[in-house]
Design a protein around this nucleic acid. Structure first.
Length: 481
RNA sequence: UCCGGGGUAGCUCAAUCGGCAGAGCAGCGGACUGUUAAUCCGUUGGUUGGGAGUUCAAGUCUCCCCCCCGGAGCCA
């Protein structure tokens, strides 16, 4: 049986086959009144009428809205099952699709059969119809997908992931799987989680030091903090590639914008300079928001109403306006002239602080902003040195509310300059032999960036905390579920 | 990690100067009803995060610890 048949309404009353159901989003869009439909999902609320029937609202996650079921009291299992269907119970319903006389929905189903699957004891079930705080729902991460908010987050996150692949595939980018276990800290992007099979209580030792030659890989290994360097190797053979996978940072970061495990998208393009890179980032981000505005309108309207009332206007403005582009030096000038109090002083050579980034994107320009050409001293070794000798071809995309969402650069393609940077930053050059090889053999200018997928979902939904846009967030002290 | 704010009923919160631990919602019982977070009446429900201390008396004051949230740093 093909998947399309599963989604089709092929249900037969002779067979107890509840796989052949119609997803609620298709039922809600249907106008085939009088037809028989089969639906299944989880009960959101039941209201009983002493007129001898019950209203059942069920949701299967396929749409923001649930489906109203009218259950007549004459059903055999009305007393035994239907009246026990409280919030959280799982149920399947066969019935007739009809136009609804009520105000809250256009269609409803008059049940001919109701099959109760798992009940949910209302004394025990932690979710309730009233609003529960996001903090409490984090403790209920195994159940929170059943709420309006987290169902909507999951659908928008999915749409953004799909749109990401669609965008890059349509542009002939090759999807690349870079390793999650790495033997070097070459990326230099933060503290790393160590991966080992050694007995931590009694590791083998040699001259007092832990003897990693006995470890699984024969040397210390870590979870990756970035797929960039691997992506560069493939871009310098296959022209344009992207990664989309998990990355890990063992930083003790406790903010609404950081996770210890998060997903990142990293495109890398050969024969591309910083301007090409900025064009790609802008096209990509605008493509994503246009996609969800088209495909996730119910979910976004919900977020706009209950989570962030400026969301829809902000998303629409981004799809309609070009991003502003300024250099770091220009940004510093704007900040120095700004009529605002900053906790941290602004001076050329210092990195932009969160408050500076937010001022630029929220106050000074009021839209997404691409800042380029940062001082070399505050940026990574692999970024291409500009002719002024002081700055590098780096770029950050800043958006209102979230701040930095994209960080990227043109990569240093000149072997001697790269080697000089590695030495100047005091990095162990023996770890970079293969990375330097790329500059010895067929080197070309190339560029890429990283986009934090969680921050993208935050921006797209208005959700304040990144822990609420991933199913099971990993943060310091927290790896439940 | 630093700064600040918190932890009280299943949930969201209140509790004045240190003086009998409360409300709404949920649950449960009943009434009513093509309902829409239904409504109305009644009702169950507490080791006030943990530990120690001050006091006649501690949710409240002091100390230690744990956890959560916001901001900062790190960064995506």
């Amino acid at each position: 049986m093909g998947w399309s048949q599963v989604c089709d309404n092929q249900w037969s009353s002779n067979k107890d086959d509840y796989v052949k159901r119609t997803l609620i989003k298709h039922v809600l869009a249907s106008t085939e009144y009088g037809s028989t439909v089969m639906v299944a999902g989880w009960v959101r609320t039941r209201r009983d009428s002493k007129g001898g029937f019950s209203f059942l609202e069920i949701n299967d996650g396929s749409a923001f809205s649930g489906l109203q079921i009218i259950v007549p009291g004459e059903l055999d299992n009305y007393e035994s099952d239907v009246l026990r269907l409280t919030i959280g119970s799982a149920v399947a319903v066969e019935g007739e699709l009809v136009e609804s006389p009520g105000a809250g929905q256009s269609v409803e189903v008059h049940a001919a059969r109701v099959r109760a699957f798992g009940f949910a004891d209302p004394e025990e079930y932690p979710l309730q119809k009233k609003r529960i705080s996001f903090e409490k729902l984090r403790e209920l991460a195994h159940l929170r997908a059943r709420t309006n908010t987290f169902g909507a987050v999951a659908r928008v996150r999915n749409a953004l992931a799909y749109a990401t692949h669609k965008f890059y595939q349509e542009r002939d980018f090759l999807y690349l799987h870079t390793p999650m276990i790495t033997s070097s800290d070459a990326e230099g992007a933060g503290e790393m989680f160590q991966v080992t099979t050694l007995d931590l209580a009694a590791p083998p030792r040699l001259d007092g030091e832990v003897d990693y030659s006995e470890d699984f890989f024969g040397k210390p290994t870590y979870l990756t903090v970035s797929g960039q360097l691997g992506a560069e190797t493939y871009a310098l053979a296959l022209d344009r590639v992207y990664t989309f996978g998990p990355t890990f940072r063992a930083e003790n970061s406790n903010t609404r914008r950081h996770l210890a495990e998060f997903w990142m998208i990293e495109p890398e393009v050969a024969f591309a300079d910083l301007a090409d890179n900025a064009d790609l980032a802008e096209d990509y981000v605008r493509y994503l928001f246009r996609y969800i505005l088209d495909r996730c309108s119910d979910d976004l309207e919900f977020f706009n109403k209950w989570v962030d009332d400026g969301l829809l206007a902000r998303l629409a403005s981004i799809t309609d306006t070009d991003f502003e582009r300024i250099t770091y030096t220009e940004a510093v000038e704007v900040l120095e002239k700004a009529d605002a109090e900053f906790e941290y002083p602004v001076n050329w050579g210092a990195d932009l602080q969160s408050e500076h980034e937010r001022y630029l994107t929220e106050v000074a320009y009021g839209k997404p902003l691409i800042v380029t050409d940062y001082p070399a001293d505050i940026k990574a070794f692999y970024m291409r040195r500009n002719d002024d000798g002081k700055t590098v071809a780096a770029m950050d995309v800043l958006v209102p509310s979230v701040g930095e969402i994209v960080g990227g650069s043109q990569r240093e393609e000149r072997h001697d300059v790269l080697l000089d940077s590695i030495r100047a930053k005091g990095l162990p050059e023996e770890h970079y032999w293969w990375y330097l090889d790329l500059r010895r053999f067929g080197s070309v200018p190339h560029s890429g960036f990283g986009l934090g997928f969680g921050r993208l979902v935050q921006f797209a939904t208005g959700m304040q905390n990144i822990r609420d846009v991933i199913p099971f967030p990993r943060t310091p002290n927290s790896a439940e579920f």
